[in-house]
Amino acid sequence: MMEFNFYAPLRIIFKENEINNIAAYTARNGNRVFLVVGKSHLKETGKLNEILEKFKRNSKIEEVIVFDKTPQNPDVEAIEEAKNEIIANRLNVVVAVGGGSAMDLAKIASICAKQEKGVWQLKEDPALNVLDAYPIICSPTTSGSGSEVTRYAVFNDNRKRVKVAFSSLSIYPTVSLIDPTLTYTMPQSVIANTGFDALSHAIEAYTSRSACPITDVYCREAISLIGVNLPKAYNSKDKNAMNNMSLAAMFAGMALNVGRASLPHALEHSLSAFNPELPHGLGLSMVMVPFLKRAVEHNKEKFADIAYLLGEDISNMGIDDAAKRCIDAVIEIKERIGLNKSLKDFGFDKKTIDELVDTTFWTMDHGIKNSPCEFSKEDIKQIYYEALEG
């Protein structure tokens, strides 16, 4: 008999233009606000000023401190700076309006500030799951990370050159405010990178050893939506396609809470730890196909289903060929959204790869073990080598 434990204490609001009510949702949870955003996008589009005006007009909000120093991959230094600002200004609610990096930084800073501890101290605390955090409101401006609905975040330690997963029930967002209109101004490259991140979440959680019937439902819906809508969103910014990508990212994020990520994320975390300027979704696109070539033999029914959900005609195929069509389907999506880079384009070489293998096993051993089959250090090295050439 299959056994699973699904827990997701979330309030999700999915509605166009609901960002206009962010101050009201925030005021129900605190009156001194730490607002985390990206470095430039919200400013350039004028949306940040609109959001600040909403807070200004809400009589229950006493203060808003804006943190706009979020790196491409949130790191220990940025989290520490954010934590100190929350403590120094006696703030009591954390709001993130941004992509996965802004939301991850906000979630980790919230619990670090509440506990008045550093990120590594908390990461290694056995009581992490039950430690309090300040209330967290997340509103994504991209459709990929799913951080708005998960208990996960990631951070880089640039001195150690590692990227580490951070998990706690306490950093589930109190409110997940998903307004698809916030994604309409995404640059084309961000649509591609974040969209592939969502696809990776769904593929990994669907085929992982932790998958369960509930996560399967979320994953299948996410994969189906992405197959149809990601190319449309990339090529034309079709609003219906963009809305559906926000929905797909949410479904894939929900699946991660139990199904969890597997080898592709383990591999990519080491890559963007070595080069923090490598976009997460782009890194995933480099390692996904080499992973699939080795994994499809070990969960043929689900990989065949992924091929079907991505639009492949497998009706007259045996299970072996149908499973392999998953590889073709993912390659086609990559081509349609312009993801054609290799690791060489970001400064990697064979010497670098050899150094990354041990790091991957140290920082993401749980992801490797959650994969549909076993992967040795030599397997991982060969996957990296294939990604090196593109």
Score class of each variant (00 low, 15 high):
residue 234 Y to F: 14
residue 237 K to Q: 15
residue 239 K to N: 15
residue 242 M to F: 13
residue 246 S to Y: 10
residue 249 A to P: 01
residue 249 A to G: 02
residue 250 M to K: 10
residue 251 F to M: 14
residue 252 A to W: 09
residue 252 A to L: 07
residue 256 L to D: 13
residue 256 L to W: 11
residue 257 N to G: 03
residue 258 V to A: 08
residue 258 V to C: 10
residue 259 G to I: 08
residue 261 A to D: 10
residue 261 A to G: 06
residue 262 S to T: 14
residue 263 L to V: 13
residue 266 A to E: 10
residue 266 A to M: 09
residue 267 L to Q: 02
residue 268 E to C: 06
residue 270 S to R: 00
residue 270 S to Y: 02
residue 271 L to C: 00
residue 272 S to M: 04
residue 273 A to M: 02
residue 275 N to H: 03
residue 276 P to H: 07
residue 277 E to Q: 10
residue 281 G to P: 04
residue 281 G to S: 09
residue 281 G to R: 08
residue 282 L to E: 13
residue 283 G to T: 03
residue 284 L to K: 05
residue 284 L to M: 10
residue 285 S to Y: 02
residue 285 S to T: 11
residue 285 S to G: 12
residue 285 S to M: 11
residue 286 M to H: 02
residue 286 M to W: 02
residue 287 V to P: 01
residue 289 V to M: 07
residue 291 F to C: 06
residue 293 K to G: 14
residue 294 R to Q: 15
residue 294 R to P: 11
residue 295 A to T: 12
residue 297 E to C: 13
residue 302 K to A: 06
residue 304 A to H: 05
residue 306 I to P: 01
residue 306 I to A: 04
residue 307 A to M: 07
residue 309 L to Q: 07
residue 312 E to G: 15
residue 315 S to E: 15
residue 315 S to V: 14
residue 317 M to K: 14
residue 319 I to L: 10
residue 320 D to I: 04
residue 323 A to I: 00
residue 323 A to L: 03
residue 324 K to L: 00
residue 326 C to I: 00
residue 330 V to H: 00
residue 332 E to W: 04
residue 333 I to V: 06
residue 335 E to F: 05
residue 336 R to M: 13
residue 337 I to H: 02
residue 338 G to S: 14
